[in-house]
Design a protein around this nucleic acid. Structure first.
Lengths: 292, 292
DNA sequence: AATCTGTCTATTGTAGATAAAAGACAAAAC
DNA sequence: GTTTTGTCTTTTATCTACAATAGACAGATT
């Protein structure tokens, strides 16, 4: 196989969802726009819909014949891009399987295990190297530097610098900046989740990312915003494997967020700084607690 | 060709240089250590030396027969790794050839122009993307974001945060840390260059990198140290194309460095901060002046 | 006149192959 | 007993090939 057709499969699935709610499909370019794919892929989707008897397709007429059936969808395993699969496999490997710092990483072996070509694995490792967890020895293997205490401290040090700076910028945003509206929405979700914390505490992870990304974005600095990827991936996987006291930790973090949000809304720089520091400090401690 | 043998050629050339000064070569592992290559490569080098009649090689005896001749060396164009050639070509292209922001970058075309395979170019672009100058549209081309005023401002903003933090750490380094010795050496070179500024002002670029890297390293933070790569590459190419008033600019920067170094040596945090800010401000202005 | 479709071309994503380079191990030399 | 060499295996760096996807253009449709 030269290239996986995951773009097609994923777009096809999404198309079925919209198809369930209408009686006719729009034009090809419009569909392409809606699904975020090119016309070539749209036509492949339409062709398959026709083959499955979901629609009748004659030039501009695309009439829906029947509602899609669960069996019409592609299984979700097939809609993930190769890069996503590699990332997940790699993370599982280095987090689960006793990833000693200093361990060598073998491209070929990794590729065989994941069931991908070496090129893809290589490119993944190159991209991943910016997270500071692995390092290349030229003409030789990669070395795992490990998710250690030092790593967490270095990461949080930069995070704190960047977030304080971004939060300070946030305060200076003009009244009509869309970020204020988004902040209000995020605040509302915080209150909803807190009100039903026992059942909804798992939503924190996603909300946390949404909130901090919003803050970082107000820096208008590509390096600061890009760095948030590093933070996000670390916390994302961290939440997945450290579930101890998740409910209490998340409830506390939500409260801290609310104080932080209130400080931002007050436009008082000192208050912002204090609330931000307080929250980042406890986030760092949570992260460190899960490490040896 | 599957792989360029640039490692071999480069190590061979370096080996000839040492060969000129001795009458016998050391053991294979020792030679490998000295040249930074594996024994396999060492043996290839020895084989070629023997073929050229430079040495007589019998197991442990490696007697030098004659001094190497200029013709024995591989031409320097052949000793650069492919990645280095790609970087240079790419930089020349985007800096020289009217690189408009928003311009599309085509992997295939780039590969053809440079004379490399697409895989290598692709990997280069992935690695290069962390410098924030290009961005990938998935399943489509790369977009050149351009070396613009915004870029320079975003870069220097982070640089200033990181360097101030690092400089503050530097002051706290224990008396016997090797960084102090290196700082003294750097200071001495500064004075030498300044004393003969008319002829030696071109050495500034290299010295600048050496100095700031030393400062950043004292942060002991991989993200801060890694970020210095971004700064270094930008200033490196910036110096190459903006030669206006180079002598004056460099002389001034050297003076600023000396004040900054003196402040570090005084261990006075306030002085350090002041000298550091002063120098970074003028470095930023120099960079901005060369941009539209 | 604007948009859409049919058709074609160009480029990207990925696999597979191969030479260069690294590295492992046992026998040989000191 | 340590270091070195001879030989062999494994891994990386790089090229080429090809299907998936994007994108361009002219003619068709509203």
């Amino acid at each position: 196989m030269a290239k996986q057709n995951t773009v097609f499969k994923d777009a096809f699935n999404r198309c079925l969802t919209t198809l369930a709610e209408t009686s006719a499909l729009p034009s090809e370019p419009e569909l392409g726009q809606a699904l975020g794919v090119s016309r070539t892929t749209v036509r492949a989707i339409l062709t398959r819909c026709e083959e499955l008897g979901l629609i009748a397709w004659d030039k501009r007429r695309k009439t829906v014949l029947r509602a899609p059936d669960p069996a019409d969808y592609f299984p979700t395993e097939e809609t993930d891009s190769l890069a996503e699969r590699i990332e997940r496999s790699f993370m599982r490997r280095i987090l689960a399987g006793g990833a000693e710092p200093g361990m060598q990483i073998n491209e070929l072996e990794l590729a065989r295990e994941i069931g991908a070509g070496t090129t893809s694995v290589r490119e993944f490792l190159i991209r991943f190297s910016r997270f500071g967890l692995i390092e290349k020895r030229p003409n030789s293997h990669w070395v795992l530097k490990g998710f250690t205490r030092e790593f967490a401290l270095e990461l949080t040090e930069v995070r704190e610098m960047f977030e304080l700076r971004s939060a300070a910028r946030f305060v200076g945003l003009p009244e009509d900046d869309p970020a204020w509206e988004e902040l209000r929405k995020i605040e509302a979700v915080h209150r909803e989740v807190l009100a039903d914390i026992d059942r909804r505490y798992k939503e924190f992870s996603e909300l946390d990312e949404r909130f901090h990304l919003l803050v970082h974005k107000s820096s208008s600095n590509r390096f600061i915003i890009d760095f948030y990827d590093v933070i996000a991936i670390v916390f994302h996987y961290h939440y997945q494997w450290n579930k101890a006291n998740a409910r209490e930790r998340n409830a506390r973090a939500l409260e801290e967020h609310l104080a932080y949000i209130a400080a931002l809304q007050s436009r008082d720089l000192q208050q912002v700084e204090q609330a931000c520091r307080l929250h980042l400090k406890s986030a760092r401690e949570t992260l460190l607690q899960s490490l040896p």
